[in-house]
């Protein structure tokens, strides 16, 4: 497999003072789904815009399919596709028109554009509403129109900037299966997200970006090694964080506490919870726990 996206020490500032990216280095292989995980403002979108040739890095290099995004932007553009963050299709046009005419704009023949429009609208479960103006579609359907546009290009590298924001669980699952399907065809997909489940489910590799720095990269299980604890214990009830902290790392999530702990600590906490009538749930740590440790804070509400 070749390298689809390769960045080396990428720095970016918009105002010459504040650095949005601070030496971001990562590598996405062809045929791979790569999730770039980070909080809002971590630099995910800036990185994607640089890799898509829409922005220049202030320092460092990014190569897409072996070509430099600054000096060889033209030859990269025809081989990549992007779904911008929080974009939405025109309310006055239909899903069919968006996908079909976008493919025509990419230089495809009418027959090929029509064939792919059908294939990808069906895949994104939009075929039945293909002739309904997007203004009359749900937010999730509108979001899927853009993903269908990008996927239908069958570009070698597809960048999806937070593609599942606002989607219901079923739509999200549909989207995930299409993202996986794209990579099975040998294409590379770089997805930015702060949804841990999404990253765990679809990606071959993840990078966690925090305040412009890549703080971890690797397969999900490699990144999860950042969590040195064996279990996580979620406790609901009148627990005192000071009382819990003796067992491991404590974090408040809404009205409950999450304790990352070792096996013995999990057993003791479970006993304690039974004695004190707290609700308790014991499970293995997840990517979310690794993310919180590496990104050093809470993830956004609703992102779990």
């Amino acid at each position: 497999m070749g390298v689809a996206v390769e960045s080396e020490g990428v720095w970016k500032t918009y105002d010459g003072v504040n650095w949005v990216l601070k030496g971001a280095t990562l590598r996405v292989e062809e045929g791979e789904v790569f999730a770039l995980l980070g909080r809002n403002g971590a630099g995910k979108t800036t990185f994607v815009r640089i890799a898509c040739t829409l922005l220049k890095p202030s320092r460092g290099t990014v190569k897409v399919l072996g070509r430099d995004v600054v000096t060889e932007a033209g030859s990269i553009r025809r081989r990549i596709a992007v779904v911008p963050q929080e974009g939405r299709p025109s309310n006055l046009s239909t899903p069919w028109a968006h996908v079909y005419y976008y493919l025509i704009a990419r230089g495809m023949s009418r027959q090929e554009a029509a064939r792919r429009s059908r294939e990808y609208l069906e895949a994104m479960e939009l075929w039945d509403v293909r002739n309904v103006v997007c203004g009359n579609l749900s937010a999730g359907m509108r979001q899927r129109v853009y993903v269908a546009m990008a996927m239908a290009t069958e570009a070698d590298v597809v960048f999806l900037d937070e593609p599942t924001i606002g989607l219901d669980p079923i739509s999200r699952t549909t989207m995930w299966s299409q993202i996986r399907r794209a990579s099975e065809g040998g294409r590379a997909v770089l997805v930015t997200t702060h949804n841990m489940e999404e990253a765990e489910t679809i990606s071959d590799k993840v990078s966690i970006i925090n305040s412009g720095r890549i703080v971890a990269t690797g397969k999900v299980e490699d990144v999860m090694r950042a969590v040195e604890y064996e279990y996580r214990v979620d406790i609901e009830g009148a627990a005192d964080p000071a009382e819990l902290s003796v067992y491991g790392m404590v974090r408040r999530i809404g009205d409950r506490f999450r304790v990352l702990t070792m096996e013995s600590g999990a057993r003791e906490l479970a006993d304690l919870a039974i004695r004190k009538s707290w609700r308790v749930n014991v499970s293995k740590p997840s990517l979310e726990d690794a993310f919180v440790i590496l990104a050093g804070g809470q993830i956004e509400e609703g992102a779990r």
């Binding site: 898509c52 025809r78 992007v82 911008p84 974009g87 990419r106 853009y146």
Partner: peptide
């Protein structure tokens, strides 16, 4: 600003001008 569709059209062979 709203549709953000121009960044999709930049990635066509002709780029922004035909768009």
């Amino acid at each position: 600003l709203i549709l953000k569709i121009d960044s999709m059209f930049v990635l066509t062979r002709g780029g922004l001008i035909p768009y």
